[in-house]
């Protein structure tokens, strides 16, 4: 009989489910790939259904295992199957800083997400910062009708790790 294998490491690591959501083409999969594999591709391949992967981060000296669900983009969040959100501890709501259509429903979307995962952590992320002139940054952000937690670039990797650290800290607090 073969020996049974366990997936264990040192310490007492906690696991949390995190959802990456937002409109289509905002860069959710690119953020996912940048965070998990440190890779970026210019090719746009729409996500069908959901893709799951895991990454362990260190938050305040403790390991936190994030089980990330990268789900297919929808114009409105109430069109996403509710079951995907069940059991999630955190949601990363991504929008595209260069396309106002991707943040025009932000207030309604966040309100809806809050009702689904009451008590969970939601982070609002403006992606594609590399496409915005640094001089126009404040003007673009002022047009977003919601408080943005962090600006990222999946292409350059700017703030991608920080975004998950930010979420991780609140998940373990």
């Amino acid at each position: 009989m073969l020996k049974t294998e366990y997936n264990l490491s040192q310490g007492n690591m906690i696991s949390k489910k995190v959802i990456l959501t937002g409109s289509f083409g905002v860069g959710k999969t690119s953020l996912f790939n940048q965070f998990i594999y440190n890779k970026f591709s210019d090719k746009y391949l729409t996500t069908i259904g959901v893709k799951v992967n895991k990454k362990v981060i260190n938050v305040g000296g403790n390991d936190l295992s994030l089980l990330l669900w990268d789900i297919a983009g929808e114009v409105s969040q109430d069109k996403v199957p509710t079951s995907y959100f069940l059991g999630a501890s955190g949601i990363i709501y991504v929008f595209d800083l260069t396309r106002p259509a991707t943040y025009k429903n932000i207030e309604k979307d966040i309100q809806y997400l809050n009702s689904i995962i009451s008590g969970g952590v939601i982070k609002v992320v403006g992606n594609k910062i590399d496409l915005i002139d640094s001089g126009n940054k404040d003007e673009v952000i002022s047009k977003v009708p919601y408080n943005v937690d962090i600006l990222t670039s999946a292409k350059t990797g700017e703030n991608v790790e920080d975004m998950f650290q930010l979420l991780g800290k609140e998940l373990v607090s």
Binding site: T4, S15, V52, N53, L67, L86, G87, A88
Partner: peptide, 22 residues
């Protein structure tokens, strides 16, 4: 609902079980 793994056992070594569960 979350797809988080409570535990697993297997006759052979395989890929990341957390991801399989998810």
């Amino acid at each position: 609902h979350s797809g988080l793994l409570f535990g697993s056992a297997s006759k052979s070594v395989n890929l990341d079980k957390d991801v399989i569960a998810g």
